[in-house]
Simulated assay, not measured.
Amino acid sequence: MSPSLLVEDQTLNSIQELLDEIAEFSAQDEDFINSNMPIQEIVFRTMLLRGNKPILLSELHHEITERWATPVRPINVSLKNLERVLDSDNYYGFAQVE
Rank of each mutant, 00 (worst) to 15 (best):
E8H: 15
E24I: 01
Q96T: 05
K80T: 10
E8W: 11
I42P: 03
L86T: 00
P74E: 08
S2C: 13
P74W: 07
R73S: 13
P3M: 07
K80E: 11
D20F: 07
V43T: 04
F44K: 12
P71E: 15
A23E: 14
I33Q: 06
A95H: 08
V72M: 12
P74Q: 06
E66D: 10
D89K: 04
L48P: 01
L12S: 08
N90G: 11
N90R: 14
E8C: 13
E8T: 11
L57A: 04
L5D: 00
N90K: 15
V97L: 15
N90Q: 14
G51W: 01
V43K: 13
H62M: 07
S2T: 11
L6W: 07
M1T: 14
P54E: 07
S35W: 13
I64L: 15
I42F: 01
F32W: 14
I15K: 11
E21D: 03
D89I: 06
S4R: 15
S78G: 03
P71N: 15
Q28Y: 03
L19E: 04
I42V: 11
D31G: 08
S2I: 14
Q10H: 07
M37R: 09
Q96Y: 04
F32K: 01
I55F: 01
E21V: 03
P54M: 14
A27P: 02
I55Y: 00
E59V: 08
D31H: 12
L12N: 01
L86F: 09
N90H: 10
S88R: 14
R73P: 04
F44I: 05
M37Q: 13
R67W: 04
Y92W: 10
N34E: 12
R84E: 12
L79N: 04
P71M: 10
Y91L: 11
I22T: 07
M47Y: 06
P74Y: 06
L19M: 08
E83R: 15
P3H: 08
L48S: 09
S14H: 12
Q28D: 00
S35A: 14
V7Q: 10
N76P: 00
L18T: 13
T70S: 15
N81E: 15
E41I: 04
V97M: 14
I39S: 08
L57I: 13
